[in-house]
């Protein structure tokens, strides 16, 4: 006799007696055959059992200066997967020479696809970026999102002698670190 445990935000609960159970999954957007483990032994020493599941979609974030498919690529922009609260998970991905950041193994479904959350955590140091939490639902296995990282605006920096008002320093350099 099969029983079902509803999972919400990664957790579900059910009353079970001790024994060996075969486990399958029904998770929209994921490859249900990848549920791991597929069998558990419930005994009186353990009341929590952890499972994982894989998806097969690919989400590409294409990072350019103007946010278009033909814009100048930004290399070195960093993104990370998140949950709905913005908590980060997994290894961050960095844009390559084409400006592409690729998240592999993300869920997709023709309908009721899970929401994929991500955010940008860095750019290359010369471009502005939006670090707010973004999300997308994928209805096909491969999707691309255009991301704008505009070139940092040119700023005028003045350097004066502290003891002679408005006397400019003829030459030198300043280093800015953030």
């Amino acid at each position: 006799m099969a029983k079902t445990v509803n999972i919400l935000n990664g957790t579900g609960a059910e009353r079970l007696i001790n024994g060996v159970y075969t486990v399958t999954a029904d998770v929209t957007g994921y490859d249900n055959s990848t549920i791991n483990p597929s069998s558990i032994t419930v005994d009186q020493t353990t009341n929590t059992y952890a499972f994982s599941i894989s998806a097969t979609g690919t989400l590409t974030l294409h990072v350019t200066e103007d946010g278009t498919s033909s814009g100048t690529a930004v290399v070195g922009a960093t993104f990370v997967r998140c949950d709905s609260t913005g908590t980060e998970y997994g290894t961050p991905v960095v844009s390559d020479s084409n400006g592409d950041c690729v998240f592999n193994n993300v869920p997709y479904a023709a309908s009721n696809a899970p929401v994929i959350y991500y955010k940008q955590t860095a750019s290359d140091g010369e471009h502005e970026f939006d670090n707010t939490l973004k999300n997308i639902t994928m209805t096909t296995s491969e999707e691309t999102v255009e991301i704008e990282n505009s070139l940092g605006a040119e700023r005028t920096i003045n350097l004066f002698d502290a003891n002679y008002q408005n006397l400019p320093i003829e030459s030198g350099s300043l280093t800015f670190t953030n």
Partner: peptide
Amino acid sequence: IERGDIIYGKD
């Protein structure tokens, strides 16, 4: 995983 089902059967 935000939502889904785990189905189990006793062996």
